[in-house]
């Protein structure tokens, strides 16, 4: 596996002449998780779309650059809030979708191994309708890993899950995405406190770096450092203008 690059996002985030978030200066170090925390409507998901090169009406004035100087196109996988699974295809067919859509030979053995790694051994032939929300996100994670890109963008992928499932998914994702440059969009302070090595709080006033525990991620739910960081992040969120 070639070394993952670090990312740099800079400039104003602009939507239709209006600045959503001014003067961004975000550094996402190579091979670890960077979290973008903030209230809704500040352009977090827009940034995720820009990183994944998806069509978006917004743009970032300074641009997005990778440390290796190569363009991002085709090197980023986005894991979205919805699982994006095809309801008529079974888990295995969903995981191999990328290769099938590009007309290349799908590596079924690898897809089976990934499904096993995410804890879905034996569910390969099941359709999304017969899986739970957590299992569906596991399939989506396996499909993301199948693309095997050095950069992964996650746009609140666990926000629709219940608390216990979410915590389990965070551990699984942290383990499976080791060594990749991950940008995680979230509004959950606990998620940020557990997973991120670097973090930014985004608001209409701009983005500021967050203080995160020194111990390596993923951090235990019960660790005092995690809980202190979570409380600290809440304090930051509540201090934002417009917070109730």
């Amino acid at each position: 596996m070639s070394a993952p690059p670090s990312l740099r996002l800079s400039g104003d985030l602009v939507l239709g002449g209006r600045v959503l978030c001014p003067d961004l200066e975000l550094e996402c170090p190579a091979g670890v998780w960077t979290v973008l925390l903030g209230p809704s409507g500040v352009g977090k998901s827009t940034l995720a779309r820009l990183l994944a090169e998806l069509p978006s009406p917004a743009h970032l004035r300074g641009g997005i650059t990778a440390s290796d100087g190569a363009p991002l196109a085709g090197r980023v996988t986005l894991m979205a809030q919805t699982d994006q699974l095809l309801p008529w295809a079974d888990a295995l067919a969903n995981v191999t979708l990328g290769a099938r859509l590009r007309g290349t030979r799908p590596d079924r053995a690898r897809a089976m191994a990934l499904l096993r790694d995410v804890g879905l051994e034996g569910a390969e032939r099941q359709r999304p309708g017969t899986l739970s929300g957590g299992q569906r996100q596991r399939v989506a994670l396996a499909r993301t890993l199948m693309e095997d890109h050095r950069i992964v963008v996650m746009d609140e992928p666990f926000s629709a899950l219940d608390a216990a499932t979410r915590a389990a998914m965070q551990d699984l994702a942290a383990r499976m995405l080791t060594g990749r440059t991950v940008v995680l969009i979230t509004h959950d302070p606990l998620e940020a406190a557990r997973l991120a090595t670097r973090g930014y709080l985004m608001s209409t006033a701009g983005a500021v770096p967050l203080a995160l525990p020194a111990e390596p991620a993923p951090r235990a739910l019960s660790s005092p450092a995690t809980l202190t960081a979570q409380a600290d992040l809440y304090r930051h969120l509540l201090a934002l203008p417009g917070a109730a």
């Binding site: 994944a52 998806l54 069509p55 986005l78 994006q84 979708l97 859509l101 590009r102």
Partner: peptide, 10 residues
Amino acid sequence: DLEDLTHQLQ
């Protein structure tokens, strides 16, 4: 979401 997915998967 499927539009985005097919775009992502090229």
